[in-house]
Design a binder for these strands. Structure first.
Lengths: 203, 203
DNA sequence: TCGGGTTATGTCAATATTGTCGAAACTAGG
DNA sequence: CCTAGTTTCGACAATATTGACATAACCCGA
């Protein structure tokens, strides 16, 4: 199947669908909202809905994708001679967190999806994150994407640090942004300093 | 919904379903096989099929799950005072690779799933792999699962090494097991020696 | 062996997703 | 404005998945 993603028209319908979905979700809950309702609200067919979104639940992760897009651009904007870990750190800390919106969507996700599914999507985001880092790192080191084991592994480890910190943060009691920042910083430093396996070298 | 996963009976039906599915897939292709056919062949209802497998495609990853199970046990069998990276290395290299079967299933996957989906499943396996390592590592270091940022990040980095190597291997020309072993070894060593970000510390 | 509680299935009926094919809307050139 | 080439949509029709509730199969202790 061909997914629309080009013209102004398709952007309009996609937006209409997204808006209609959020309204319904907030008003009557995710479960109680059918894909058909969303499509009808947006004035299109059910089939068209599925041309724009892989699934009903995908709508609940639009913010993740937007964040990823933002991150990719932030990374590209960093100076080419800056250490990659530092670039990642700066980009992450500069993210314009909208705690209100994040919390709201997170509540919807928690309502509609079992933990496993949320984690699964998180993994997808992590992988895309790693890909973005690898792309940038490869560009700097002068190698083609996917052509260097070192680049691949390093990018994945950086992603592992960031998302590991995020997971750790979500499990903990202190959910403040400051705590998240602290954890990310610590995890990234560990990777940067090569201290990852260090403390556990003898376990 | 409650998923069966306990008694001998459920194991029997699950096996029957898996076997029926593989036969059909091999005989007439994945696309041309309906979930209903598989269920009928196994002598159960369609609904029961979905109680044992999340989706039709999940059957194409049964070998991954089996491998994961094998790995978890292999890891548990290693001495508690062995460095975790070494344990992982030994466990991976000891895996009883059945190249025939692996190739066959891989072909089915390639036929039925677009690359994105395959990668997505791979990520799930990687996350489970990381969880297994974290569990073992936490046990050795004497911390609760998910209670130590260092354990979380280290486990994820080890997983990143192994699966990064795997991805790299799949993209390369030399698909021999020896090459895969070499790549895994190199990637794990990099993590172990803290050389992950090292070479890129100035990029 | 006989309950009783637990677990796995069957039944039935919504939704959710996807393939196919033709029509409508949009774009660039004349 | 009109035409040809694209791209998005609508209309249908299979499957694929999931929820809810009733049954049958199993397991354990009296």
């Amino acid at each position: 199947m061909v997914r629309p993603a080009h013209t102004a028209r398709s952007t309009r319908t996609r937006e209409a669908l997204r808006r209609a979905a959020v309204l319904r979700f907030l008003a009557q809950g995710v479960e109680a909202t059918s894909a058909e309702q969303i499509a009808a609200d947006a004035g299109v067919t059910l089939r068209t809905f599925y041309r724009h979104f892989t699934s009903k639940h995908e709508l609940l992760f639009a913010d993740y994708d937007a964040g990823l897009h933002w991150f990719r651009r932030a990374l590209a904007a960093r100076p080419a001679d800056e250490p990659i870990v530092e670039s990642v750190r700066v980009a992450i800390f500069a993210f314009p967190y909208d705690v209100e919106a994040i919390t709201q969507i997170a509540a919807l996700r928690a309502e509609a999806l079992d933990p496993g599914r949320i984690v699964a999507h998180m993994r997808r985001v992590e992988a895309d994150f790693a890909a973005a880092v690898a792309e940038r790192l490869g560009l700097r080191a002068g190698v083609e994407p996917g052509r260097s084991l070192a680049v691949t592994v390093t990018a994945r480890c950086i992603a592992a640090a960031v998302f590991g910190a995020m997971e750790f943060w979500m499990l903990g009691a202190d959910r403040s942004l400051a705590e998240l920042a602290r954890l990310c910083h610590a995890a990234l430093s560990a990777v940067e300093d090569g201290a990852v396996a260090g403390p556990f070298r003898h376990y």
